[in-house]
Write a protein that binds this DNA or RNA. Structure first.
Lengths: 237, 237, 237, 237
DNA sequence: CATGAATGAGAGTTCATTCAT
DNA sequence: GATGAATGAACTCTCATTCAT
């Protein structure tokens, strides 16, 4: 499974960015006291993140401030900076979380289904619906790549997030191959599917689709039907 | 052509938003002095808009401030408020302008071409390329519908902008009908095309497409090819 | 009548403050063209004042701006400065007007009444009710003496306004004398009456009287009754 | 005494308005460090208030700005917002303070005096003199109820301030009852006294009393004398 | 006389971030 | 690790007033 190793990646990264934590480098025999500290820190970091998500989902990007997050989390402003180097690291962590939820949703949709066509259908739909139902998660992704300063999105973080995004689409890609599409074609189709999905969501989210008196769900279904026709027929594209 | 009359609409509206202009109502015989005043005002408003566009294209949405625009335009901050009631009205005007450029580009691409398939191909491609080449114009459209407060985007302005956007896609829609698609199907296809385009552009713009090692142009071409197959074949969708 | 000469004072003053009106000093034989100009100017000045009053009564002191007044009057901002040297002169004129209305109201209440006790009662009540019904007129008076810069309230204007205020109270004072109070005592009583009235109005206006669960009208009536007892009985105070 | 417990109320409230203080709830054993922090905070808040009062008493309401207060207090503008949520909260605190001083003054004047007539005389005079000597304290009260936006004067604060104002007049009211006036009558008289006082002060403050060539002190004394006659005689009003 | 663009100062408020304690 | 006061720069917007035309 493509995501088997990636699942843990965000968790291990969770405290890596902490500043000025003079942890002694010690290869083996982890001090139990350190472990408890670490666990505590993770719990607290998570509680900050929960607050951040709540604020962000309620008030949106513009109105989300460190003050507001701190207040909601029951911390003081300064305390946040023990867990996150800056505001954008908070967003980075939120996005990472969001991608985990996305992957979980997709996995769940596929669980127990082996038929390739069904896997395409179910995987893609889960992806689409996740974002349609949670438009703030879409915002999150956009902010990171539009508004963030370089330090907010390090190449490493970027690659990690990309990997998780690919993970969410990979089952669909593999199912397309199972249907007979060559690897290259399967990649193309999954990318196009991704783009189509994002486009529909953006237009739906901004109310731009209504202007054509169309529903995003219908359009998505139509696209998916054609994709399956192409894939099953093994069309040359 | 749907856009023939609409082209001028934004231009005449350009000074309509100015506050406290208590011009006496005079039915006929436009005072040449008034005309010159009006022209001057338009020139100045345009120069502010030019500055705004420059700042916006350079620094992006977040970093664009009234101060910055004023400085670039060679005005004081207060002076801007003679031309625009608030910051969001500036954005509104920028977006209106942008849509005019988009329409011009599409019209130009279609000019002299009568073959329906060619018109689909040229119109859609012009649309796509306009935004691919000018990603900030895409941002503009997004901002207005995500971050704007109610007063920034009045329902009237919203409808006007929507209309211009539809104008840019209508030639394609009509060409699809000319190819044999029923009206309803043509509308669906043009909406899907629009969504696909936006999706590709967003992913391309945020670098998310590279992650699949794909080029947005190729994907767009592929989508267009399929669309033409569907349209020419009169497929049931 | 105390106000006989004063009635015209504000009218003649109305255009005296205009700046840069290079009217030739000419003792006699007024040029009919000048007269017409003058009349026109007065009409326009009045229309500005009407707008100012409307704005002020609607929006209150804080929200009343030259912009707003100009807009309401159908003039541009700059034009106001042809009629008034500055904002505070507008307020001064408004207050003068207000005092004229006050005097008219008092005169009307007294009209045809010759009984001294009745004159005290009617004159004082008219005064009280004028301000109770038009609290903005009270604001006007306060602003001038609290917030105005020296240039706004010249000693001359101050004296003129004071005179009109005295005019409004003088009938009451004279009636008190007619009831038998010596001049000094009548002055004291009318001043005290004035203070009491203002106090009640201020408390009523700011909602401070409700806190004692009292109505200003009842308290005023009670005060007036005692005053009449004192005056009629010729008490020693 | 009605005000015995109320005296401390404003003091304890002094830090209650601070934002985002996420102090853990701890029933007993107040951490001495917390106490010191708290004390420090109170000292600083007080120093801001002192600066605000100084600025306000010097420049008046209109010219008092957050910038000016910050400068005088030796803080940056932003720092003020740690202590007060907005400008009007500063005024609210100033008024609360002012009312404390008023009450102290009245209490001191009454201290040790048991004769009812004397208590009326001394209590009322202390009230009058406090505001005559400190006209800015009068302004403070007026501003809050004229210019403040809703959020500046919450109903709770309003009630608290009203209560303190009543406290300052209650001794007089009770003394009037001790002199034989029924409760209702005592309330009426104290309200009328209050109104009379305010009226005299306003006129004195704005210079309108001089116009009658009267001194506010004399008028106040005369009013008080009559009041005592009424109260002692038990007149029906 | 009237215009209306422009000034320039100033308003209140918000914010991410820092740092002594 | 946590506090919370403080910074300092930034923000949008408003205003009375001036002045070339």
């Amino acid at each position: 499974m493509a995501s088997s190793s990636a699942t843990a990646s965000t968790a291990t990264a969770s405290t890596a960015t902490r500043r000025s934590t003079a942890r002694k480098v010690r290869a083996a025999a982890p001090d139990p006291r350190d472990l408890r500290q670490q666990a505590l820190a993770d719990v607290r970091r998570r509680s900050v993140l929960d607050a951040a998500r709540a604020v962000f989902f309620e008030l949106g990007m513009e109105k989300t401030s460190m003050r507001e997050i701190a207040q909601r989390a029951g911390y003081t402003v300064g305390a946040l900076y023990s867990y996150f180097a800056n505001k954008e690291e908070v967003y980075g962590a939120l996005l990472a979380e969001s991608l985990e939820r996305l992957n979980a949703r997709v996995q769940q949709a596929l669980d127990g289904h082996t038929d390739a066509a069904q896997r395409v259908q179910r995987g893609a739909t889960a992806f689409f619906e996740f974002y349609r139902e949670n438009p703030r998660d879409l915002d999150l992704g956009f902010y990171l790549f539009q508004g963030m300063t370089p330090r907010g999105l390090t190449p490493e973080l970027n690659e990690k997030l990309n990997a998780r995004l690919r993970d969410a689409l990979q089952p669909t890609q593999q199912a397309l191959q199972a249907l007979g599409l060559p690897g290259k074609r399967a990649l193309e189709e999954v990318t196009a599917l991704f783009a189509h999905t994002v486009g529909l969501l953006v237009l739906s989210h901004t109310g731009r689709i209504r202007m054509f008196k169309q529903a995003s769900q219908d359009l998505f279904d139509a696209y998916l039907r054609q994709l399956l026709v192409r894939a099953s027929g093994g069309a040359k594209g």
